[in-house]
């Protein structure tokens, strides 16, 4: 199993509060890795450290290493925008940019690639097809993205992230605002996407983790309690906390 992201001794403080405590995990390439744990345990924070959105927090201190493609992105000479472009982000609720459907997908391409303006329409079409949205929106590409249903908006946000050709997809409880059918569409999409991308998804829904996880990271109070393949994790958990969590003791 080849690892795509290698997190070593990651500690994160906000002010005096320690949010992440000595996190050491490897995230495998072309797999779906699920970060699991009760609310407030630091799942979102861990996910956001991967693309340095934690830089936005006030009074944040990070130590340790996050190695992606042989480069420690926490201490990189690379521009942070280039690091972020490697990862598409899907949030808890869809946040379409205040512009048309077309421009939402084209946004990242336009901003980061000054060449090939001509290919943008094709690329927008390709990525909308990639998330199965094309047929639903091809006649109204210029209408505001906010007019789409929530489920459609979330797929649009996925297309927006895919448009800059990332290698990793980060998703923070991406189905929590969606109806069951839209949620299923996202889950199925992720299973499809892992052929080409490394997927890291946060959830607190155990059943969802069972359905799609290849690899599980279980967190509790800022620490990684246990991590391993989904099979090991669900059938043969080692830690007491994990066993309790799987039984539903935390909910």
């Amino acid at each position: 199993m080849k690892s795509k992201i290698d997190i070593k001794n990651l500690n994160l403080f906000i002010g005096k509060q320690q949010i992440l405590k000595n996190v050491n995990v490897q995230i495998p390439e072309n797999k779906i890795t699920i970060i699991l744990g009760p609310s407030g345990c630091g799942k979102t924070t861990l996910l956001k450290s991967l693309n340095r959105l934690t830089d936005l927090y006030e009074d944040v201190k990070v130590s340790g290493e996050i190695i992606i493609d042989n480069e420690d992105i926490l201490h990189s000479s690379q521009d942070v925008t280039a690091i972020r472009k490697k990862m598409g982000l899907l949030a808890q609720r869809p946040y379409p940019l205040p512009m048309s459907i077309y421009k939402n997908v084209a946004y990242g391409i336009r901003i980061s690639e000054s060449e090939n303006k001509k290919t943008i329409p094709q690329r927008v079409e390709h990525h909308l097809k990639q998330v199965n949205l094309w047929d639903e929106v091809k006649d109204r590409l210029n209408s505001p993205a906010s007019r789409l249903s929530i489920g459609q908006q979330q797929r649009l946000c996925l297309a927006r992230g895919l448009a800059v050709n990332p290698e990793i997809i980060l998703a923070d409880e991406p189905t929590s605002a969606l109806d069951p059918i839209s949620s299923q569409a996202i889950e199925e999409k992720f299973i499809e996407l892992k052929e080409q991308y490394t997927v890291v998804m946060v959830t607190h829904i155990l059943r969802q983790a069972r359905r799609i996880a290849d690899y599980v990271i279980f967190m509790y109070l800022g620490e990684v309690v246990e991590c391993g393949t989904a099979e090991e994790f669900f059938t043969n958990p080692k830690e007491e906390k994990t066993k309790a969590y799987i039984k539903g003791a935390f909910n």
Partner: peptide, 13 residues
Amino acid sequence: PEELTEASLSVGA
């Protein structure tokens, strides 16, 4: 919402 800023930053803006 901050998530809008994050969405924009995460595609490389």
